[in-house]
Amino acid sequence: MTNVQFVVSSAWLIQHLHDPQVVIVDCRFSLADPQLGRNQYQASHIEGAYYLDLNLDLSSPVGEHGGRHPLPEPQELAEKLAAIGVEFQKTLVVAYDDSRLAFAARLWWLLRYLGHEQVAVLDGGFSQWEKAGYPVTDVIPSPQKASFVPEVRPELVVDREVVKNRKDLPNVVLIDSREGDRYRGEREPTDKIAGHIPGAVNYYWMEVTDASGSLIPITEHQKRWQPVESSEEILVYCGSGVTACANLLSLELAGIHTGKLYAGSWSDWISY
Rank of each mutant, 00 (worst) to 15 (best):
P217I: 10
S250W: 06
P227S: 06
L249E: 06
I234Q: 07
V228S: 09
A244D: 04
G239T: 05
K223Y: 07
L249K: 02
P217V: 11
E220R: 07
K260V: 07
V242I: 15
A246C: 15
L249R: 01
A211N: 15
G259Y: 04
Y203V: 02
G239Q: 10
Y237D: 07
E252N: 14
L235P: 03
H257A: 08
G213W: 08
G239Y: 10
S250G: 15
T209W: 13
I218L: 14
L253G: 04
S231W: 11
K223V: 04
Y237A: 01
P227K: 11
E220W: 10
Y203A: 05
A254W: 02
H257M: 04
E220N: 03
Q226H: 12
E232P: 03
E252G: 05
E229H: 14
N247D: 10
I218A: 08
W225N: 04
T219C: 02
C245P: 10
T243H: 07
A254E: 09
I216R: 01
G241V: 09
S250Y: 09
Y204P: 01
K260D: 04
V208A: 14
Y204N: 06
S214L: 14
T219F: 12
G255Q: 08
C238M: 03
I218T: 08
G239R: 01
A211I: 12
G259R: 09
E233Y: 03
E232F: 05
E220H: 14
S250T: 04
V208R: 01
Y237C: 01
I216F: 14
E220Y: 11
S250D: 00
I218Q: 01
P227Q: 14
K223H: 07
E220T: 13
E233K: 09
T209L: 10
W205E: 04
S212N: 09
Q222R: 13
G241S: 07
E229D: 09
G239L: 10
I218H: 00
W225M: 03
K260E: 05
E232S: 14
W225I: 02
N202F: 04
A211W: 12
Y204E: 06
H257Q: 13
V236C: 05
E252F: 00
E252D: 02
R224V: 04
S214R: 13
N202Y: 11
E229A: 12
L251F: 11
L248H: 09
I256L: 15
R224D: 03
N247Q: 07
Y204A: 02
V242R: 00
V208L: 10
Y203N: 00
A244E: 02
L215A: 01
G255K: 02
E207R: 12
Y204I: 00
M206C: 02
E229R: 12
S212A: 13
I256K: 08
M206K: 14
W225F: 15
V236Q: 01
G239M: 07
L248N: 09
E220Q: 15
G213N: 05
L248P: 05
L248G: 10
E229Y: 07
L215Y: 05
S214P: 05
W205Y: 15
I234N: 08
E232N: 15
E252K: 08
S250Q: 06
E220D: 12
L248M: 01
S214C: 15
I216G: 08
S240M: 11
Q226A: 13
S240E: 12
P227A: 06
P227I: 04
T243K: 00
E232G: 11
P227H: 03
A211T: 05
L251V: 00
G255T: 06
S212F: 09
L215S: 02
